[in-house]
């Protein structure tokens, strides 16, 4: 079991993690060549106007004063207003609306990856060096080699353009106006359906989700199945397995059944570490499918130099990444009794 003290200690570590990320973001934004005052004042602004904005933003204060103010703002959750992308709107409001979109995408993608990746990896290991194994391995390698920004368009071509089965972009047909409860569109439309709004919106949301989730899912599946295969084989190779293996192929499969739990442990860790890659994949997937999550938000913000928005988005990314790995760590400690708490 995971003790309360263990849990609290981990949770408390989020503070230095975010403090560190915030400092890094501060440093990176100050190293970048853009000038926020120029960005806000606009391209046609006079030198005086830019100077006025500089004073207003406090950019003339000593750098350590700026750093202190920046940290204070973050602690008080005052992330500022967007400069350009959605001018004047508080960053927190934008993030609150956009975050669930990405979260939902990552969640479904990860789920597909785990559901297919683990069985495929096990199959590949059990049937080591057979044609099944080779096919699975080449398949996984192809899954990693094919970029999301190509497999996505291919799926759109096949399912939306030629077959006309699924929608090509967006999250839900524009005809539906589902009230926002959680921001997760499949969940919201389900609640809406159950409260008597009809299942049309739910169906639409699911059909919009299928392609982008599949694109992310294939990538994550490829990674997980490769890891699962090597982990299973590693377990078999270990000493206590060696004796059992000597008894023949049948015994090997039995042993693998027992080894499964041990083999999943490193895979869980990999899932946690790969969550960041998944978020990177989400950035690309959102761009391909025209889904407005925090991935496209970050790209837009960097492109135009919307500094408060870049800060906010990066902090959210870091927070998510840490949270997922915290969850992985807890699952891990639960599964592996050797870890002292």
């Amino acid at each position: 079991m995971v003790s309360k003290r263990f849990f609290l200690k981990r949770l408390l570590l989020l503070v230095p993690v975010l403090f560190g990320v915030a400092t890094l973001v501060f440093a990176i934004l100050h190293l970048s060549p853009g000038d926020p005052a120029k960005v806000i004042a606009g391209q046609r602004a006079t030198a005086e106007q830019v100077a006025a904005v500089r004073t207003e933003l406090g950019l003339n204060d000593p750098i350590w004063v700026q750093y202190g103010r920046y940290l204070f703002d973050i602690v008080t959750l005052n992330l500022g207003d967007s400069y350009i992308v959605r001018k004047g709107v508080p960053v927190l409001t934008i993030l609150r609306a956009r975050l669930p979109v990405t979260l939902e995408l990552a969640l479904y993608g990860q789920l597909l990856g785990i559901l297919f990746g683990i069985p495929l990896g096990v199959l590949s290991a059990v049937k080591q060096d057979t044609i099944t194994d080779h096919l699975t391995r080449v398949g996984a390698l192809t899954g990693i080699s094919v970029p999301i920004y190509w497999s996505g368009p291919l799926l759109i071509l096949l399912f939306a353009q030629f077959l006309g089965l699924l929608p090509a972009s967006g999250r839900i047909a524009s005809a539906y106006d589902v009230p926002v409860y959680t921001g997760l569109i499949t969940l919201d439309s389900l609640v809406y359906a159950l409260s008597g709004g009809g299942f049309g919106a739910f169906q639409s949301a699911i059909s919009h989700m299928l392609l982008p989730a599949a694109v992310i899912g294939v990538y994550s599946m490829a990674l997980i199945s490769r890891m699962m295969r090597s982990s299973m084989l590693e377990v078999v190779r270990q000493d206590y397995m060696r004796t059992a293996r000597a008894k023949g192929q049948g015994a090997k499969i039995t042993i693998m059944k027992h080894g499964f739990r041990n083999a999943t442990i490193p895979v869980i860790t990999v899932i946690g570490i790969q969550f960041g890659t998944l978020l990177g994949g989400a950035v690309l997937t959102e761009t391909v499918f025209g889904i407005g999550g925090i991935g496209t938000l970050l790209v837009n913000a960097i492109e135009v130099g919307d500094y408060p928005l870049v800060q906010g988005t990066v902090l959210v990314f870091a927070f998510l990444f840490t949270l997922v790995n915290l969850g992985v760590d807890l699952t891990y400690s639960y599964l592996d009794p050797r870890i002292e708490q």
Partner: peptide, 17 residues
């Protein structure tokens, strides 16, 4: 290495003109 590579690259890209 623990940073997600694409996101790290995006952050670094912001530093260069």
């Amino acid at each position: 290495l623990a940073f997600p590579s694409l996101l790290l690259a995006l952050a670094l890209v912001a530093i260069f003109p």
